[in-house]
Design a protein around this nucleic acid. Structure first.
Lengths: 247, 247
DNA sequence: TCGATTTTGTTCTCACGTTCACAAAATCCT
DNA sequence: AGGATTTTGTGAACGTGAGAACAAAATCGA
């Protein structure tokens, strides 16, 4: 049955759930604002205008104001934002006023780096366990943590009420690990393995891919190089498609 | 001269520079397609439909087709895409048919992890140098590389024609390092330090921030938790703004 | 040869995100 | 007190991106 496509922009949910819709793009910037506020607080600044804040966060001030307006009216016209107060409000919005337990799966170079990473143990997150499949590594200590056996994954997740999993295994293992994490009750995954994860609806996955970032930079490098040298007219760049596939 | 009546959305720049504008969102997905194609090629698949490819890349097929159409018409209707041919075309578009020299600055845990990271040394990228400011670390070997002194940064960049710099220093050092990289001719930076970089126009910066990713996950976790438990009516969530700033 | 089938390339529409611009609110100064 | 000044919060315009839908091109089978 086709829902008649005529209620074009009608029935905006603007009536049903107005205030609880913070755009994704905004959510992604809130941590940046939080960091900027923390830096200002450490400098002893108690009040900041949207202009100051925007500069510190590397965005433009209109965007910052609009972003903050989704959380509520926490500024004072003619004055600016109270640094500590806004800091608390953003922390609360993100959910950093409570602690989140994190498990890191795959303690290779990257996993170790993350376990030691200062920003990781910032207030709000607690490393509940480091897990690896290699028996030789189990028992090794990384800072204050001991590497646990992969077999205990489900038990550890349950005992420490882990809701966030970080995958730093090889790509070939990532999907299997994700399945076990989800099966054990994890509902958010941060994936560093270069592989596409399939998870049930309701499970959040974010992906960090180092080689993709590099490739995006390479693309822009190449564009710059082409512009500098011979600016070739568009449409002539492609040579005749030889199209001899390796058979 | 404007033809009067009907050009509402007319005067699209579709006439001036049509072919050379690949959207950023598309560029960011090309590496994903490339990886999917490589995986298919390794399985011996020589031809793939947009549907297959899209599934492998974790996107929907209409988006994939539209993305590929920016590069040109490299598919065959009724058949699909030749895997090897498309792989080459995307590689060329991204700029992976040439080699890019990369310098990594700051060889702490993360820097070491990156230096060893397999995806990093994928075809297209070459680690030209590892650099650290700590004299104790200079001379240490990481795989096939030797850590060089920070003082030699400019010389190394020049000698190896480095165009891409990776910053894995503490946040406090990041801007200074960026300045030196740019001064020495680097035009693309991948920044892992949690700090906002200011660079001249024309220099590309991409940022990878682990704690931000975690915080975004936390936000969604909290939303899920709030929905499960007591769905509080919007507008009542905020307690009275106590607003006692630390004076 | 010609129709049936497959699958691409592209158009159109809608949703989302960004930026501008300005009224509303708060403070400051005379 | 009241006008000038500062700065927020937001409405509106604009631009980019996503997805549905379909015509055009290629193959296949009779």
């Amino acid at each position: 049955m086709v829902t008649d496509s005529r209620n074009r922009r009608a029935a905006q949910n603007a009536d049903l759930r107005p205030s609880r819709g913070t755009p994704e793009a905004t959510v992604a910037r809130l941590p940046v604002y939080l960091r900027a506020l923390t830096a200002l607080a450490e400098q002893g600044v108690t009040t900041a205008s949207s202009e100051q804040l925007a500069t510190a966060a590397g965005v433009n001030s209109a965007k910052l104001r609009k972003d903050l307006s989704y959380l509520g009216s926490y500024g004072t016209r003619g004055v600016g934002y109270d640094v500590e107060y806004l800091r608390y409000q953003i922390s609360r919005e993100i959910g950093l006023t409570q602690d989140w337990s994190v498990v890191i799966v795959g303690i290779g170079n990257l996993g170790q780096a993350l376990a030691n990473y200062a920003g990781f143990t910032t207030r709000g997150f607690r490393i509940a366990a480091l897990v690896d499949a290699d028996p030789d590594r189990v028992g090794d200590r990384i800072g204050p943590h001991t590497i646990k056996d992969m077999a205990d994954l489900e038990r550890l997740i349950d005992r420490h009420e882990v809701s966030i999993g970080v995958i730093t295994t090889p790509a070939s293992e990532a999907q299997g690990v994700a399945d076990r994490l989800v099966g054990a009750g994890v509902t958010s995954i941060l994936n560093f393995a270069p592989s596409v994860l399939t998870v049930p609806a309701g499970v959040q996955v974010r992906k960090v891919d180092l080689s993709i970032e590099l490739q995006i930079l390479a693309y822009h490098e190449q564009r710059k190089a082409n512009l500098d040298g011979a600016e070739m007219p568009p449409g002539l760049a492609a040579p005749e498609p030889a199209k001899e596939a390796a058979s």
